[in-house]
Design a protein around this nucleic acid. Structure first.
Length: 97
DNA sequence: CCGTTGACCAGGC
DNA sequence: GGCCTGGCCAACG
């Protein structure tokens, strides 16, 4: 299993209405957070891999490189039931553990 | 094969 | 409390 595949495995395993942070995934796989970000950037299976459920440790979203803008991502997450505090995800209710 | 490059994160200024 | 810096490690050219 390649590094990308493992990252995709975890991301695709995030249930609806929950989110994960890049750092958490990286720690789980024993990698650097940069690798996780790179993997999601190179993500080709965007339909099967909900990369919008992956956010910063702060709760904020990736700007620019994402799929059209963070506002879109925000809408998607809210649509799935994720709570937002301003421009950040509410970890108290929506963090996947 | 080696240098560059990142959807990051933590610490310092 | 916002901006800059360094460090981390895999993928790309």
């Amino acid at each position: 299993m390649k590094t990308f595949e493992k990252i995709y495995e975890i991301v695709s395993g995030i249930p609806k209405g929950k989110v994960l942070t890049y750092g958490d995934i990286a720690i789980t796989l024993g990698l650097s957070p940069r690798v996780v970000g790179y993997a999601l950037h190179a993500n080709k299976d965007s339909k099967n891999i909900p990369c919008h459920r992956v956010v910063f440790k702060d709760g904020s979203l990736a700007t620019g490189y994402a799929f059209g803008g963070k506002d879109i991502q925000k809408k998607l997450l809210i649509n799935e039931g994720v709570d937002f505090i301003g421009e950040k995800v509410d970890f108290k209710t929506s963090l996947f553990s």
